[in-house]
Each structure stands twice: as C-alpha cells, then as structure tokens.
C-alpha cells in the first residue's frame, strides 16, 4: 500500500483536454482522467486510461483512502528537508552507500550486578559460536576465521565496492609472470586463496607499511587497505610507553592480488603528511 503525501490537494493537474490536442496526434486521444470523491468515508477513485502494448485501450481504476490531519512539522525543519545537496554530496541520491541501517539489532545492554532486578545481559557473539559445534566459521568477506559467518561480518559495509577488484588484478598478475621462470605456487597468478587455504595464504599475503605517522592506529591502516580487498589482519607497531606508532605496520590480505594492488597504489602515497613505503613483508622464519 503506497502512501503519497500531496501538498496541494485541491489542485487538479491540468490534463490535456482532448479537444485541445492536435487532431493529427491520435496517440493522445485517450479519455480524460476522472476523479470521483472523496466521499463521506474518504474514499476517492481515480480512473485513467492508457494503451497497452497491443494498442488496446485499458481502463485503470485506483481507489484511495484520503485522510487529513494536522502535523506539527516545524516550518524551518520542513524547509530544510527540501534543501539541495552541496559539497561532496552533490550528485548523490538518497540511499547511497554512505548511510545504511545496520542489519543487527543493538540494544542497551543492561548490567545490574548489585542485587536489584534487571535483565540478564545477553551474551555476545562468542556464545553463538558454541552452537556452531566444531565447524569453523569462515567469513567470505573479510576472511576472518572463527568469529562469524559472512552474513554477520562486521566489515561487510566496507566491502561493497570491491567485488570488481579481484577479477581485474588477477589478469594483471598473470601477465607479470615471466615466460619459463619458475614461479612458486603461492605466487602464481589466478589463484584465489580464499577458503580452506586461508590460513597459509594469509601468512604469505603480508604487506609491510613503513613511514607511518605517529597517530596511525590499526583501524586507520585497516581502512586504508581494505579498499583493495578483504583484510584478515592489521598490525601497527606501537611504542609501549608513549602509545604512539613506531612508524611501521603489517597488513595481511586474503587475496594476494589485492595485496599486490595495495602495494602498487600505496607505495609513495601521501598519508597523514608522510609518504608511505609499502612492500611485501619478508617471510617469517618458522
């Protein structure tokens, strides 16, 4: 049931009256729109005519219930709603990616440890994991294992625009392989390392980022790199005493291709007033 708010109820839009229309144009010779009502119950009927694909005349009758009420919409508020978008929001339509309603229900977690009555605080996701008896919960989005399934990925909001990436980068990596040179399996192009290989795959898709600014945190690095593809782990080395970043960090990508792309783009990228240096991380000794 659609509800339409009509600001000017009494105005009937001027419909082309058949007599005024060019005689030559047969297409417009449809019977006029008729509005019946609203009657005492507020029922309004609108009858329109149109031509269907067989060029047959079709009568469309719509029945509405009309209600009138008074809203306390403050004048200025209503006015502002009609403002045009400006700045970076120009050319944006409603419902673009920036704003989305969370799928998860969040509530005020009550905790009452001191004897008075209160609801038991619901246990967090960890308890739900117990029901997944023995099956390792793997999320396709961020590749993080064990925490949640894809549908409940906390990072899913970040991943929408990235579906195109893996495909394009795979193509480039294949080209990079020299003819005849031996390429170890982990470096071969076209291999998607999602799924079961994830554990080993992520160790090798490790990228080192150096020349980070002092107040870079894991979240910043994550944001920066997640645009290239799902990230399983970020680590930023911090000075224990001052809490500031020591200047370097590591990012583990799910896909090697994403890691490559990240290196290509971010190496030399200006971030927080410093030029980043991004390269493959040296393999860890087992």
């Amino acid at each position: 049931m659609a509800i339409t708010m009509v600001a000017n109820p009494s105005n009937q839009a001027a419909k082309p009256r058949w007599a005024d229309v060019d005689d030559d144009n047969d297409d417009y010779l449809l019977p006029p729109r008729k509005v019946i009502g609203p009657d005492a119950n507020g029922i309004k009927k609108v009858i329109e005519y149109k031509l269907n694909h067989e060029n047959k005349l079709v009568r469309v009758s719509k029945t509405y219930r009309v209600r009138k009420f008074v809203t306390n919409a403050r004048k200025h508020v209503v006015e502002r709603r009609a403002w045009r978008k400006f700045g970076d929001a120009v050319d944006e339509d409603v419902g673009v990616r920036l704003t989305m309603t969370s799928v998860e229900d969040v509530f005020l977690d009550r905790h009452m440890p001191y004897g008075s009555k209160g609801e038991e605080p619901k246990k967090s996701q960890s308890s739900q994991n117990e029901e997944g008896s023995g099956v390792l919960q793997v999320c396709r989005n961020c590749g993080r294992k064990g925490d949640h399934w894809t549908a409940r990925c906390p990072y899913k909001d970040l991943n929408q625009p990235n579906e195109s990436f893996p495909d394009t980068s795979d193509v480039t990596s294949v080209k990079d392989v020299k003819k005849g040179a031996y390429v170890p399996p982990s470096r071969r192009g076209g291999e998607k390392s999602k799924g079961s290989d994830m554990r080993r795959g992520t160790e090798e898709n490790s990228v080192r980022v150096t020349n980070l600014s002092e107040d870079t945190r894991e979240a910043d690095l994550n944001e920066l790199c997640s645009t290239f593809g799902p990230v399983t782990r970020t680590y930023v080395s911090n000075d224990q005493r001052t809490g500031t970043c020591r200047g370097f960090g590591f990012v583990n990508f799910v896909n090697r291709a994403d890691a490559e792309k990240a290196i290509k783009v971010l190496n030399g990228y200006g971030y927080d007033n410093l030029i980043l240096h991004v390269e493959w991380a040296a393999p860890r000794t087992k």
Partner: peptide, 13 residues
C-alpha cells in the same frame, strides 16, 4: 534499535 551507520569520514571522528 537498529542503528544507522554513516561512513562519510575517512578518519576518526
């Protein structure tokens, strides 16, 4: 309640 998430900023709020 279902919070509305707005990711307009690239850096911390």
């Amino acid at each position: 309640m279902r919070p509305i998430l707005m990711k307009g900023h690239e850096r911390p709020l």
